[in-house]
Amino acid sequence: MDIKYNSSGLVPVITQDAETGRVLMLAYANTEALSLTRSTGYAHYFSRSRGRIWKKGEESGHFQKIETIRVDCDADTLLYMVHQTGVPCHTGYETCFFRELDGKIIARRLVNPDEAYDKKDE
């Protein structure tokens, strides 16, 4: 299937827990990140802020093992169904969608991000 990448060569990737169905995060992939994801079985993304590909968990050890990759009807968004090791969010929460629009926290912080992530790249 031909994926429709945007003008920057990226496609949005929604990542969902394969066991619970909980939406974990949204990131982007380019053709190389998608190829690495498919060949290794672990989620790879393209970091727009760092300008490079990264394997989820490369700094924290909180990896995402791919169960399946789905494509939406327009072929312009991907859905990674994953088995999450640790937490998906760099803030330490169990999902990147841990707060409501008014700021109310609705999810649990499972780890201290200062202990789990290398902050030198931020």
Rank of each mutant, 00 (worst) to 15 (best):
H83I: 10
F97T: 13
E100M: 08
V82E: 02
T85V: 15
T77F: 00
V82K: 08
L79W: 00
N112W: 13
T77H: 01
L78Y: 01
R109T: 02
E94L: 03
F98M: 03
T77W: 03
C96A: 00
N112L: 08
V87A: 01
Q84T: 13
D102P: 01
R109S: 00
A107D: 08
R99Y: 08
I105F: 09
T85I: 11
T95N: 00
T77R: 07
C96G: 02
T91E: 14
V87S: 03
Y93D: 05
G103S: 03
F98C: 13
G86E: 05
Y80Q: 08
P88M: 10
G92E: 15
F97I: 00
R109F: 13
G92I: 00
L101Q: 09
H83Q: 15
D102W: 13
M81Q: 06
R108L: 12
F97M: 03
F97V: 03
E94T: 07
I106C: 09
Y93R: 04
G103R: 05
C89E: 10
T77G: 05
D102I: 00
C89W: 00
G86N: 11
F97H: 13
G86L: 12
L101P: 01
E100A: 15
P88E: 05
I106M: 07
Y80H: 02
I106T: 15
L110I: 15
A107R: 12
G86I: 02
L110D: 08
R108S: 15
T77A: 11
R108C: 14
V87Q: 03
T77L: 05
G92C: 10
Y93E: 06
L110P: 09
K104L: 10
E100N: 14
T91N: 14
Y80W: 09
G86M: 14
T85W: 11
N112D: 15
L78E: 08
V111P: 06
L79R: 00
G86S: 10
R99K: 14
V111D: 09
Y93L: 08
I105N: 05
F97C: 05
Y93C: 07
H83W: 15
P88H: 12
A107N: 09
L101T: 10
N112K: 09
M81L: 12
L110V: 05
Q84W: 08
H83R: 13
G103M: 14
C96L: 12
T77C: 12
D102Y: 06
V87L: 06
E94W: 08
N112R: 08
M81H: 01
I105Y: 01
T91S: 09
H90S: 11
R109V: 02
L101D: 06
H90D: 09
